[in-house]
Design a protein around this nucleic acid. Structure first.
Length: 161
DNA sequence: GCCAACGTTGGC
DNA sequence: GCCAACGTTGGC
């Protein structure tokens, strides 16, 4: 039984296009306990995740990736040179974890936050709450599939709606 | 263990 | 660039 996720990244930091080029990538730098716990305790190899571009105009879901390696220590936390440095973390007590994701698909058109907000079946989602800050968000399968179906539509069809 | 202050996220 | 929301910290 797989889980479904939405994971956020600022495309200036790491985008779906970079993941497509790279094929797979570590997902480091998560510095929120709830998000860490989801990665550490729940995420499994094979889980699918929507790749959300935050802090972009417009923000939205850009594609899909798959978890290909389960949680392991986020070593960027104990590197003073890293923007994700956390002086409390050590190799003995890593505090933070990361996973690895692999590229699955890029949608022909971004599913914008605005589109999600307008969709009648997506009204209760955490990501639609104003300034929801969690960067790793569990989704129900049906919500994942609705959003993926929106993403797979041609851009021109979305504009007609 | 409460809660004010602070820092960050992220839509606008 | 603004600023509301909210997770986290730290004084008490």
């Amino acid at each position: 039984m797989f889980n479904y996720w939405l994971i956020k990244s600022e495309p200036t930091t790491y985008s779906i296009d970079q993941l497509k080029r790279d094929g797979f990538s570590t997902w480091e730098g998560v510095r929120n306990f709830q998000a860490r716990n989801y990665m550490r305790d729940v995420m499994k190899v094979g889980d699918l995740a929507l790749f959300y571009h935050s802090n972009e105009k417009p923000p939205g879901v850009a594609g899909v990736c798959r978890i290909c390696k389960e949680a392991f220590p986020d070593f960027t936390a104990w590197n003073p040179e890293s923007p994700y440095y956390d002086p409390r973390a050590t190799s003995e007590k890593p505090i933070w974890v990361m996973v690895e994701v692999e590229f699955v698909e890029k949608f022909p058109s971004l599913v914008t936050l605005d589109t999600l907000k307008r969709h009648p079946e997506l009204q209760d989602l955490y990501i639609l709450r104003s300034r929801s800050r969690l960067s790793i968000i569990p989704l129900e399968k049906k919500h994942f599939e609705i959003i993926r179906a929106l993403g797979r539509q041609e851009a021109r069809l979305l504009h007609v709606q």
